[in-house]
Write a protein that binds this DNA or RNA. Sequence first.
DNA 1: CGCGGAGTTGAGATTGTTCAAGGATTGTGG
DNA 2: CCACAATCCTTGAACAATCTCAACTCCGCG
Lengths: 251, 251
Amino acid sequence: MQAVSTIERRGYLELPLRRLQALSVLSAEEQAAVRGLQSIRVKRLKGETLVQAGSEPHFILEGWGCQMREVPPGRRQIFAFVLPGDAIGHLPHDTAEEGRFVYKALTPVTMVGAGVLLEISRDGAARAPGVRAALAAFRDTARSRLFDHVVRLGAHTAYEGTAHLLLELNDRMAQVGLAQEGRFAFPIGQERLGEMLGLSGVHVHRTLAKLKQDGHLLAGPGWFALPRRRELAQAVGYVAQAELHVRVPPE
Amino acid sequence: MQAVSTIERRGYLELPLRRLQALSVLSAEEQAAVRGLQSIRVKRLKGETLVQAGSEPHFILEGWGCQMREVPPGRRQIFAFVLPGDAIGHLPHDTAEEGRFVYKALTPVTMVGAGVLLEISRDGAARAPGVRAALAAFRDTARSRLFDHVVRLGAHTAYEGTAHLLLELNDRMAQVGLAQEGRFAFPIGQERLGEMLGLSGVHVHRTLAKLKQDGHLLAGPGWFALPRRRELAQAVGYVAQAELHVRVPPE
DNA sequence: CGCGGAGTTGAGATTGTTCAAGGATTGTGG
DNA sequence: CCACAATCCTTGAACAATCTCAACTCCGCG
């Protein structure tokens, strides 16, 4: 008999559950339904497309992806990183945004489809209204992050923008319990970070070096830590999303 | 007896109507309701806030505004220009985006409040379902433009980004009939354009000069024209939004 | 007629890019 | 266990893009 895989033993579905519960109120049944998504697990290799446009929502369980666009010739722009616990795919009330970007895996990624949670029964009642509300709220937080990103690209120096992005990633990883002792996993390369920040990989490297010099960044193989987060946030004008946050009740 | 003002004589409400009809199907009653918004006209001076966060939707009738954020110290980032015919304010299904930006007038602006069109009667039926659908679709097109903007800031040179933005503005002005003989009004300064494109005003000027040299741009006091639009669009990878467009039927 | 705002231009400083090469790390097959 | 390839990180040097500062022009307006 084969051993149960790591990802099944540890409750990886706790990640999206934690994120959803930060955004709305889930009934006991809804919580159970989220935990029950185990069966329909999907895997993607590095570089593969995560979900097609218009596809049902998926939760990321493991690995990093991105929302991006290819800009000929040979350039690409990353709009957002997709982290474990995040939801992607077609959420309620999306329309015209489809087709202006694609989702790609930056590392091997494990997901589960969550479309089943959004089913509407014949009498018009949503199966999981709290999940639906949380997904809509999640989509809105993802969108509002895009405004921060525009500021990083348009009004920040390389130093500010890099620090601002690392602060955001630190917060998001911590929100789903993926930051221990102040460290969070950073499984992608400097070139990818550059495609997010609109910088060359070389300059990203020099910027990270300066952050380390200034005592704002610790790095090891595959992880980062921001030892003086408060001070750095103050310095580059970072405002945690939680500080703007409104919890959305189900309809 | 006082003369009827210019803006009342000419049917300025045709502008938002034209835009809404490009996005959804409006019944004759709905069209009449849009034209009937005349009474509740609102004016703003240059620099004033257009609408507060969470305010009812407004249509812009005259003048330009922007969606922006102040970035201390003294910098600002514009996320989008707001043109005549556009809708701003709280549209259906908005939540978390509020508070991450403000709307400001870049010239004197005339608007009308349109909240009355979104009223829901006691039996749960929307008064103007087509308008509601069109506003939701409009909000989505506005959002999808933000992805283009990220590309301009992150992956384009000054030349490409400037050309790309001018192409977008030309298209949007033409869509509501505000481009005659290929010319469209451009009532704001190079400094503001720079705050959109993440460039200094001086560099915007040099970039515009280069576009003129290359025969891609004609400019006079308060207007621009793009005489070789097709070619320029091809050169900088501009894709008109209409080409991606799906017309949304009322629910 | 004079003032203020916006456009224009030049020169030099800064920031970020490109190219190139060497070092470290990891996974793979012999 | 070693050799090798592939990938990423690191560093230097030259180059290009863009910014800042400063001066000057042009224009509309009171």
